[in-house]
Design a protein around this nucleic acid. Structure first.
Lengths: 214, 214
DNA sequence: GCCGTCGTTGACATGTTGTCAATTACTATA
DNA sequence: TATAGTAATTGACAACATGTCAACGACGGC
């Protein structure tokens, strides 16, 4: 390929990035449903029609955002796990990191929620990338689980690590989501969010811990 | 009030019901996002404009549907709990009922998902009704939990029943949702949905069970 | 038989999405 | 440098949804 084609490829990638960043900024600001393609286009300083050259759909654009979010999540999980030796502690740290992820970039957590809630149609290019991203996230958790089973901090009879991983993700996600969205409603019953989440994490730890582990 | 006013009130209520039923039917058929107010109107055999006399919004209509769903859920939970003596068994049965609820009327489960995922704005009339419905559902679970703690089938140190209830709902919901929506994706890793959910319920039971309980 | 109220609707204004033909910019080649 | 060809970019359009309103019609009360 010629120099030009290469440069063009780069510029295209950069442009793609700019679009995603514009969309993310608006997403963070007003929530995905309230974001229009027109606003994204204006923020990225290009015409609305051009967006459809880079992304098939508004949904496709969302998938791209979600992919980035999952990448960020994997990075956080890795560094959280790296800070501990015992497998069970790694898992606990990952749970904490997930909560932090929600607190620091709520829109990325929201993107994950939508990804979880929306069932896969058929292979949109960016959706496949999302699935890969999700697998990468789970790989980190699975590694921590395997480690924990090996070092004796997690019950041996807990079951297949991959299954447990899916379960943990589902549990944690469900709890954080409800704690966030229904915080007002829950507060009316005298429950504060932070405590609820903390207790949830304790539950999950109890669930995994080998008997006799502190 | 005159006879007439009373009759009118009844007809209004009936009409309201018809609208909701029309909407539910379409919801079940094609998913909420694909349902248009025009389709609902046509199915209920009235003009689109009239819908807005009965419901402020499309969202308001969704709240009405969700309220019905939560009512149905409470009914199922009650009859599930009634079939067992031990508190722990009641809780487990409720979990099973939730799965069944999803399988038999997926759209109602979907409505619950949206309700959980969407954070409360401010008091729309039907949204308040939803919150009440949610509380009623939880009351059934809380009763089972209290019973279990009293009869010794559930660990005494499990914590405040209401908190545990919220947690259980969040966990179960999260798991079922992921199992449903990502079943294909999960299957690619050799995990089948039914087993995953079953194992999840076992986990939750382990989490609650008093040591020494079968 | 007339009036007023309530139910009902057609038509409208607004806003959003996705597409296409047409225009512009840019590169390679003679 | 002029020109032909290719890629980038856009304005304008069609389709469709939502929510609102003024107007119309039916029905009970007087």
């Amino acid at each position: 390929m010629s120099y030009v084609a290469e440069r063009r490829e780069e510029e295209k990638e950069r442009r793609r990035h700019e679009i995603i960043e514009a969309a993310e900024s608006l997403y963070a600001q007003k929530g995905w449903d309230a974001v229009t393609m027109d606003q994204v286009a204006r923020k990225a300083r290009l015409s609305r029609a051009l967006l459809y050259v880079y992304f098939k759909d508004k949904e496709d654009l969302l998938f791209a955002i979600t992919e980035r979010a999952l990448g960020e999540l994997r990075r956080r999980f890795e560094s959280a796990a790296a800070g501990h030796e015992l497998g069970l502690d790694k898992v606990t740290a990952i749970g904490r990191a997930y909560v932090l992820f929600q607190q620091e970039t709520p829109f990325q957590f929201d993107a994950c929620s939508r990804y979880h809630a929306h069932q896969a149609h058929q292979g949109m290019p960016n959706e496949v990338a999302c699935n890969a991203g999700g697998d990468a996230v789970m790989a980190v958790m699975v590694e921590a689980l395997v480690r924990g089973i090996a070092d004796g901090s997690i019950r041996k009879d807990v079951g297949d690590p991959l299954r447990v991983c899916v379960m943990l993700w589902a549990f944690s996600h469900g709890l954080i989501q409800i704690a966030i969205n229904k915080s007002q409603e829950i507060a009316r019953h005298g429950i504060e969010m932070a405590g609820l989440i903390e207790e949830g994490r304790a539950m999950l730890r109890y669930m995994l811990a080998a008997p006799g582990t502190a």
